[in-house]
Amino acid sequence: MITRRTTRQIHVGAVAVGGNAPIAVQSMTNTMTDDVEATVRQIHELERAGCEIIRVAVPDMAAARALTAIRDRIAIPLIADIHFDARLAVAAMEHGAQGIRINPGNLGGPDKLARVVAAAKQHGVPIRVGVNSGSIEKELLARYGYPTPQRPDALIESALDNVRLLEGHGFFDIKISIKSADVLTTIAGYRLLAERTDYPLHLGVTEAGGLIAGTVKSSVALGILLAEGIGDTFRISLTRDPVEEIRVGFELLRALRIRERGPELISCPTCGRTRIDLFTLADQVERHLQTMRSPLKVAVMGCVVNGPGEAREADIGIAGGHGVGIIFKKGELYRKVAEADLLPVFLEELEKMEAERKAGG
């Protein structure tokens, strides 16, 4: 049983972060933010996958001004990612950002930070203090050295120094992230930070890599931290379609039994008995499951002989054969289907089960 670390609670739009709120799964768009149509289209895809908070890059004033149109067309809170430019931070909030991610120490001095904090107070916008290994102040690097698993102190001190800048302006609606590309440094850093503050923490491994490397690195680091009760929001950073970040994120929460969203997929690794393109079949079923909400156990198996028995606890499953496949429920044969019709018929059965679950409350 995981015992969550007790943190203060803030709100990003309508989403509560920290306290006893569910751990939120975030992502970030990779579109040009001033391309409103492309950005909204990608956010809608992320919403369907379960994304609960979305961050967009705001590199210029055109991107800041686009936030109004974007926010009006999406259902989840919108965070603006700002670097160095206080004017962009203020403009982003004026145009509808419901959260901003900044490094307070690199906005150009106390006066500019004061303007950003005043705007955050006026618009009721929380601030994420975001520090990573590449943005640590020179004096801290000189004192502590570059962050390592043995000594991540520079990350922690940089984050807390920046938090103090906000607190000095009477601002406390804060969450913190400290990111490293190194898994062990990330774990050590967040452990130490969690001991020193009760602000909510956003977890992530920065520049984690592509689908395989990024999933492994993020799952190891974040899985260990979440299992220890550390973390209030997180992002799985992948050099990939951001929808994949959400899929990995919810599977991570499911594996730790922290949260369950939608069906769980069980599938076999294939063997010499497989007579169907199970990889494609499983991928297509998995993509469909991302649009569903019912907590079903769904199996995709490659062998009609052993598959149903091996996935006996599944609510519903599909097993491929040569020219024919079967749909089974709780390990029992439900329906035989021609191989060519197997996928569409199975998806239709899934939709029926989803509708029945919804009708039953």
Rank of each mutant, 00 (worst) to 15 (best):
E195V: 06
A194V: 10
V183Y: 06
L225H: 12
A221F: 04
E157T: 08
V243T: 10
T239H: 15
S177K: 11
R151Q: 05
L184A: 04
H169I: 02
T215C: 12
T206Q: 01
S158M: 09
D198C: 10
I236T: 12
I174V: 04
A227S: 15
Y190S: 02
E157N: 11
G223R: 09
R164K: 13
L193C: 06
L211Q: 14
G229C: 10
T215K: 12
A194T: 06
S219K: 12
I230R: 11
T239R: 12
L203Y: 08
R191E: 10
F171W: 01
A188V: 01
V205M: 15
L184K: 02
G145A: 02
K217W: 03
K175L: 09
E167V: 01
F234G: 13
A159K: 04
I174E: 01
Y146I: 08
S180P: 03
P152G: 02
G204H: 07
A208C: 15
L226G: 11
H202S: 13
E228T: 03
T186D: 03
A142D: 14
I224R: 12
G209D: 13
V205Q: 06
I156E: 00
S218Y: 14
R240I: 14
A194S: 15
Y199M: 04
P152Y: 02
L184P: 00
L222F: 08
T186N: 03
D241A: 07
A208D: 09
V183H: 02
T233F: 11
D161A: 15
E195W: 12
I212P: 11
F171T: 00
R151E: 00
R151M: 03
G231M: 14
D241C: 13
S158Y: 04
R151A: 07
L201S: 04
N162P: 12
P200E: 11
A142P: 10
L222G: 15
Y190C: 02
I236L: 13
G214N: 13
V216S: 05
L203K: 14
F234C: 14
P147H: 01
K217L: 07
F234I: 15
F234P: 13
T148G: 01
